[in-house]
């Protein structure tokens, strides 16, 4: 097997006195969409924040393309081509849609402008509400803005945290279609509790439970394992 794009090795992360991630291990291969599944409080969001350096691991390692980024500042991790869509979408509420996009653009070259155009074709609402403050968008539009913003730079790996959260089914369908198109261009790690969405998009999965990675495999295996789904995901 080739060197993974992302490797998390025995990572331990604390938030204040709480030991959230406990020796977590997982790998992400280039070109795949890897799901992080698990119940609330399993450590999925913290895993993404640890990769981004927002809650750095106190022990263990995070490697991107073989480079150890465990102690790298967040802004440098982002510059290595890691896009991040947080659970709360991270929209700058007082900035317009256009300003939210502009502030995210690390360069204003032709390639970035092309990606911007592509994003606006993917999410036409963003073009329509270009001058509207981010805080006045609907939940779905905020999610689209957050994804487009993370993807506007050259992105090798996109981390998306629960994009379906709080969205109406029809909007979830739009987000699924968008992520399907995005995964043709980049590697994605997706945290998701909506199993329908996870099943539509995922190639591989990791199940987290109490800060541990307890199972992993291909989505087909998970679909066939009712016991696993019932035990860790509450489905079935």
């Amino acid at each position: 097997m080739t060197q993974p794009l992302l490797r998390v090795e025995k990572a331990n992360t604390y938030i204040e006195q709480f030991h959230i991630l406990q020796n977590i291990n997982f790998e992400v291969q280039k070109g795949e969409l890897t799901l992080l599944l698990g119940r609330n409080g399993a450590g999925k969001t913290t895993t993404l924040r640890t990769i981004m350096g927002l809650n750095p691991a106190t022990s263990g390692h995070v490697f991107i393309k073989g480079e150890d980024i465990t102690s790298t500042p967040t802004y440098k991790i982002a510059k290595k081509g890691i896009g991040y869509v947080p659970e709360d979408q991270g929209i700058f509420y007082e900035l317009t849609v256009g300003e939210n996009m502009r502030v995210a653009m690390m360069h204003e070259d032709d390639a970035t402008k092309e990606r911007l155009e592509w994003s606006l074709e993917l999410f036409p609402d963003l073009k329509k509400f270009w001058k509207k403050p981010g805080g006045q968008l609907s939940g779905g539009q905020k999610q689209m803005l957050s994804i487009a913003r993370a993807f506007v730079n050259e992105t090798d790996l996109l981390l998306i945290d629960e994009p379906s959260k709080g969205l109406a089914p029809v909007v979830v369908e739009k987000v699924i279609e968008a992520v399907e198109k995005i995964k043709d261009h980049t590697t994605v790690v997706l945290v998701e509790q909506n199993f329908y969405m996870a099943n539509r998009l995922g190639d591989r999965f990791y199940i987290l439970d109490d800060g541990l990675s307890v199972h992993d495999g291909y989505m087909k295996e998970l679909n066939e394992n009712e016991e696993l789904k019932r035990k860790y995901l509450g489905i079935g």
Binding site: L54, T74, Y93, L95, E99, V103, M106, N153
Partner: peptide, 20 residues
């Protein structure tokens, strides 16, 4: 824009590659 965005959400602006 970066300053205003940084005030609104310091984590997010860093995740967009800005040394806040």
């Amino acid at each position: 824009l970066i300053v205003r965005a940084g005030v609104m959400n310091k984590d997010m602006i860093q995740a967009l590659g800005v040394n806040i």
